[in-house]
Design a binder for these strands. Structure first.
Lengths: 210, 210
DNA sequence: GAAAGTCTGTCAAATATATAACAAGGTTAT
DNA sequence: ATAACCTTGTTATATATTTGACAGACTTTC
């Protein structure tokens, strides 16, 4: 599986396929055609076939796709063949919300610790995960083979955290702070910019009024 | 301002312009050229000029763009000329996190209430906003001119909430549940699919290893 | 106030992405 | 086993998006 020259647009559709296939699997559906999937997901059947074919011929003519196989294949493509150690920086409401999502754990994103600078938070346990002093961040990350860091700090604190992550062995950042982090090396960064998304809602609300 | 035939790709970049212009404004920068903005934001200068020109000629040859004017114009385009009443359904960690974000309020998204089905949550105040019984949802939304509903429930509860929203005058949904809502009318729906985003992180992590 | 320099708005070209079309191969029904 | 039917993988076409180029207009400098 080389995965090269695959466009980001394709990659961002993969989780959706994964999600719908899981649903089909849970409903004991054994096979699915691109046409049927198309109806459920809302992409064209052509697009679905072309997306999947970037990674291999998973289907069979006259039959369609085996739901379980395809689910597993897409899981492989998405890197879900092994667990990833993660930590959260910022133990506020958002950090706690993420700590409590069991679905992340189920997919293999294993929360090892949470970090905060607030003495009132340090020492707490959230969903049986310790909140640790930020002083110990770099040491903990390297000693526990943490690969992904979720940044749940304020806008002001985020860049500092990003700088510190770059000194560790961690290789990916999932950023929830409303700022574009300046990253020097080849770190993987995904942003959840809530405000950006909410502003598209107001844009569409306004547009519909005209 | 007609805003028609504007591609979604353009619209999703607008909040980023808005964010960077706010930063410039806070730093007392008076003017900015597409070239300078390009360096900051990471889009090409050509794209920036073309994006902005979809909505009008805000710049001036030989000078560039007036930061304050452009910030205001983009705010207008994004619908930030008046406040929007919003409510949150689901008063768990995520709902509480959103309730505590002052930046939403500052932009005009006014939280009027939170709803939950859990009797232990009902009656609480979160950041001076009441948690109300879901029984009163439809009444409250219509009586308080709520336009946007943030869905912060579990996956299982989300579709039911969406169905109930469609019976009210609300016209937009900001959905955080990991499910694609089935919507009949012309409701505006924006999704934050956290898992989908996290899976792209694992995809890139895996791809880099090969 | 003239010349040199800057920067937008816009058109054209290049690239990327999505859709349509269909041959080839497999399935199902009889 | 055969025929009718499906459905994929893939190529070709259409559409969308991004980048490049440049004339014209304004600014700045001298």
């Amino acid at each position: 599986m080389k995965d090269k020259n695959i466009s980001v647009a394709v990659i961002r559709r993969l989780p959706k396929y994964h999600r719908y296939l899981k649903e089909l699997l849970d409903n004991d559906v054994k096979r699915i055609s691109s046409k049927e999937l198309s109806k459920m997901i809302g992409f064209t059947a052509s697009q679905i076939r072309q997306d999947l074919n970037n990674f291999g011929g998973f289907g069979q003519q006259g039959y369609g796709y085996n739901v379980e196989d395809l689910y597993m294949e897409i899981g492989k493509i998405l890197g879900l063949t092994r667990p990833y150690n993660v930590v959260i920086v910022g133990a506020g409401n958002l950090g706690q919300a993420l700590a409590n999502y069991t679905s992340f754990d189920r997919l293999g994103f294993k929360l090892q610790a949470m970090f905060d600078v607030n003495p009132k938070m340090i020492g707490l346990k959230i969903n049986s995960v310790n909140v640790i002093d930020m002083d110990q961040f770099e040491t903990f990350v390297d000693e526990n083979n943490v690969e992904i860091v979720y940044i749940c700090t304020s806008r002001e604190g985020a860049q500092d955290v990003a700088d510190r992550i770059q000194k560790t062995k961690a290789r990916a950042i999932w950023n929830f702070a409303p700022v574009d982090l300046k990253i020097k090396n080849d770190m993987i960064v995904e942003n959840i910019h809530l405000i950006d998304n909410l502003l598209t809602v107001s844009y569409f609300l306004k547009s519909r009024m005209e």
